[in-house]
Structures are given as C-alpha cells and as structure tokens.
C-alpha cells in the first residue's frame, strides 16, 4: 500500500509546520504580556544597510546568466530523474542496457561540453 505510507508524510507535514509555530507563538505571547517593547518606528522598521539609510531601492533584476544556470540545472535534474529508474533495475540487466544509457548520457554530456566550449560555464560575478 503506497498511499498508506504517504499518510505518514502528511502527519509529518502537519507536525513540521506546528513545530516552528510553537516558539513563534511564545514570541507572540511575550508581546501580549507587555513584557517587551513593541513600539516600532520608522527607523526600526527600515531595512538594514549598515546603519545608514538605504542608498538605492532594492535591485530587482538578475543577470540573464543566472537563467542559464537554472536551465542547466533543470536539464540535469530531468536527466537524473530519467536515470534513477535505470539505476534501480541495472543490476538485473546485461551490458547491453548500459549502451542505451550511455547514448542518453553522452548526448547530454555533449551539452555540457558545448556550454563549456562557449564559455557559458564561466561564472562572471
């Protein structure tokens, strides 16, 4: 029964959400008993930039470089997901299966090589 095991995951999810909420609730209670100051002001609630007013608005744009890395990550993630079923049945199979997988991986390794060749892997800060 597969689903039965995942009921346990659900229980764990619920407990995992409850777990950090406990200290947060404690923190909330401290604010309720007037023990700690709760007088936020403009300076307190401004963002931290080493003690002076923020020089610029928050940068909200990435370099396209990051996108390439993320794409490479997605591609290799998908590849690995394809390879795991093979890995599980590999011990029962003959050598011939290795060649099929080798083609699969070599095609992708060529992608990596291509990226390397075109300096897509050069990380520029």
């Amino acid at each position: 029964m597969i689903v039965e095991q995942y009921v346990r995951v659900l229980i764990l999810v619920i407990l995992a959400i409850a777990f950090p909420l406990l200290p947060l609730a404690g923190s909330y209670l401290f604010s309720k008993i007037n023990y700690r100051p709760a007088n936020s002001n403009e300076i307190k609630s401004s963002i931290y930039e080493c003690g002076v007013e923020a020089a610029d608005i928050t940068w909200r744009q990435f370099n396209a470089k990051y996108f390439l890395y993320a794409l490479g990550f997605v591609i290799f993630d998908v590849e690995v997901i394809f390879l795991f079923p093979w890995a599980v049945i590999h011990t029962e199979q003959a050598f011939s299966i290795l060649i099929k997988v080798a083609i699969f991986v070599i095609v992708l390794a060529f992608g990596l090589f291509y990226a390397w060749r075109w300096r897509a892997l050069e990380w520029q800060q």
Binding site: L68, I75, E79, F82, F84, I89, I97, F104, Y114
Partner: peptide, 28 residues
C-alpha cells in the same frame, strides 16, 4: 518504469536526451 523506459519506450528515452540538449543549446 525503468523496465519500460529502457525496453519498450527506448526511443522516447533517447529522444528526451536530444530534446534536453536542444533546450540547453538554445538557451546558450
């Protein structure tokens, strides 16, 4: 899944790698 992927659907399996390769090259 593993048995099927490397047996019956091997063409799809190999084509997937080519698809992924094209995605990478295109992005680059």
């Amino acid at each position: 899944i593993g048995t099927l992927l490397l047996g019956k659907y091997i063409i799809a399996f190999e084509l997937a790698s080519i698809l992924l390769l094209f995605a990478l090259i295109g992005a680059i």
